[in-house]
Structure formats: C-alpha cells, structure tokens
C-alpha cells in the first residue's frame, strides 16, 4: 500500500491533471479486510468491555453464590430432606446457573454490535465502506463469535471450578472427569456464545437498540413462561423448544424429563439462530440503510 499516501499536493506532482494517482489496490479478500475492521469497531467502544465484564461477573459471581446458597440452605434442612434432594442435585448445573443472567449481558452485546450502527447513523458509513451486506454481517458474526467464545469459555470454566470448590466443602462437588460434566461446561460456554449471535441477528432485524433488547429478552425469558400456560402435556413439549430451555439441556448433567437431550437441545437452539439469521440476512439485503 505504498501508494495510498499520495494525497498531499507535493506528492501528486508532476502531473496535476492526471488521476488516478499510483495507488495500489489491496490484494486481500473483502472478508479478511472486513474482519480486521469489525475487530477494531468492537474493541473501540466502551459498551463491549462493559458487557463482557458483566457476562463474566454474572457467570462466575452468581454461579459461586448459587452454590454457596445451596450449602447454606442445606444446613437448615433435616437429613432426610437432604438425602432426597441430593438425588436430584446437579452440582455442575448449579455452578453454571449464573448463565441465566449472563446471557442477558452477552445478548445485549450481540444486539449492540448491529443496533448501535443504526442508532448512531454509523451504518451508512459502514455500508458505504463494505457494500456487500453478506460480508458485512458475516464479519460481525465471526468477530463476535470469536470474542464471545473466549470470554464465555473462560467464564464458565472459572465458574465451574469455583462452584465445585464451594460445594466440595460438603463433599457435594464433582469434577470434569465425571460423566457428562465436561460436555455440560462446554455446552454452557457455547450457549452464551450463541446467545450473542442470536442478539446480533435480532439487532439486525429490529435495528433499534431498545426494541431489539426487548425482543431478545422476550424470546429468552418470557417465551418459557408463556409455554407454561399451555395445557399438559403441551406446556412441556412446547416449553422445551424455547431457546433458554433448549440451551439448559446443553449444560445439565442430570437427565431432566422436561428437557431435551443435550444434542437435541443444541440443534433446537441452533435452529432458532439459523432462523433469526435467515430473517436478518433477508432484511439487511432488502432494506435501505
């Protein structure tokens, strides 16, 4: 790119009437350039740092707190009651419970990655720079997925280890080598990452930050509640298809008859995201910026 610095009048001499000047066209792919650009965009706004810190804090802090609270309540119950409860107790899921709140923080980050473009007016500048809207959405998705995956995985593993450290004080902890535990921890990290992408797709469809956040929260938090209003057995059959319940199947170790299997859960949740992305891609391509 030696030729891109030829803007000063002195540099464009000796033929002022001659244009274009000797600038070299970049040889990289459009996607590669867009990825670098989106990384700069993501790291250069404060909301990114804030929502990632909140994601970590909720996952680790609340996970540990839930474990501690379980022990605390256990002391107040009789031995007989505790013996029954111990059968149902899932120490892995308990230490990962902070995901319930963390998903909102990382989901909001996903929403903001696109909605802030529209809310601020940056979208016009962005799409003038990267007019291929598929590449634009793909670059945002890849960068968000990469950043989200790192933060989510680190958070869930720390939450798991801290939670087990608390529980093992009463001999209730488990370890990564136990059956399905590693799968559940990885599942929680993957769930958080995918929620960020879900937020990005919703942000693309809704375009305004408040509406997009309300939509995301509605689907993640309210949909399972609405499902409960259906008569049996449809409350369970429909409820387990809701994104959060499908995701919960991914990070539970103990079998829960009201949930899907972990693999089913992953695919149902991926189905939601694919659906959101299809709508996002169509609206992004068709609508005026």
């Amino acid at each position: 790119m030696s030729g891109t610095d030829t803007m000063t009048p002195a540099a464009t001499a000796p033929e002022p009437e001659h244009f274009p000047t000797t600038h070299d066209k970049p040889t990289q792919s459009t996607l590669r350039a867009a990825l670098v650009s989106e990384w700069t965009k993501l790291r250069s706004v404060r909301s990114t740092v804030w929502s990632l810190v909140m994601t970590s804090a909720f996952t680790i802090g609340l996970g540990t707190l839930f474990c501690w609270a379980y022990l605390h309540r256990r002391e107040q119950r009789g031995d007989r009651q505790n013996a029954v409860r111990a059968l149902l107790f899932d120490p892995t899921a308990r230490s990962l419970n902070g995901v319930v709140l963390a998903q909102l923080a990382i989901g909001v980050l996903g929403v903001l990655v696109m909605s802030s473009e529209y809310t601020t007016g940056m979208i016009r500048t962005s799409l003038a720079a990267v007019p291929n809207r598929r590449v634009f959405l793909l670059a945002k998705t890849i960068v968000l997925a990469a950043v989200g995956l790192v933060v989510a995985m680190v958070s869930v593993f720390v939450a798991f280890f801290m939670g087990q450290a608390v529980l093992s004080g009463d001999g209730l902890g488990t370890s990564l080598s136990a059956d399905s535990v590693l799968r559940a921890v990885l599942g929680a990290g993957l769930y958080l990452t995918l929620i960020a992408l879900f937020g990005l797709a919703i942000g693309t469809i809704v375009r305004r930050t408040p509406g997009a956040i309300a939509t995301l929260f509605g689907i993640v938090l309210i949909l399972p509640l609405i499902a409960q209003a259906f008569p049996e057995p449809w409350d369970v059959r429909i409820g387990r298809l809701a994104p959060f319940n499908a995701g919960q199947a991914m990070f539970s170790v103990r079998y829960d008859p009201d949930l899907l299997t972990p693999t089913q859960g992953l695919f149902v949740f991926l189905g939601w995201i694919v659906l959101a992305y299809i709508i996002a891609m169509v609206t992004l391509s068709r609508r005026d910026a």
């Binding site: 790119m1 066209k25 970049p26 040889t27 990289q28 350039a33 867009a34 670098v36 650009s37 989106e38 700069t40 965009k41 250069s44 706004v45 404060r46 909301s47 802030s116 473009e117 601020t120 007016g121 940056m122 500048t125 962005s126 720079a129 990267v130």
Partner: peptide, 19 residues
C-alpha cells in the same frame, strides 16, 4: 458515526475495511 469511538479508531476501522 459512533459517538463513543475515538476519531482515530473511527477512521481506522473504515481504513481497514478497505485494506
């Protein structure tokens, strides 16, 4: 433009998107 972004970063992300 995004008001929360520093002027340099605003131009940098545009520059990078076009190599």
């Amino acid at each position: 433009l995004h008001g929360g972004r520093r002027a340099f970063d605003h131009l940098l992300c545009l520059a990078q998107s076009n190599g």
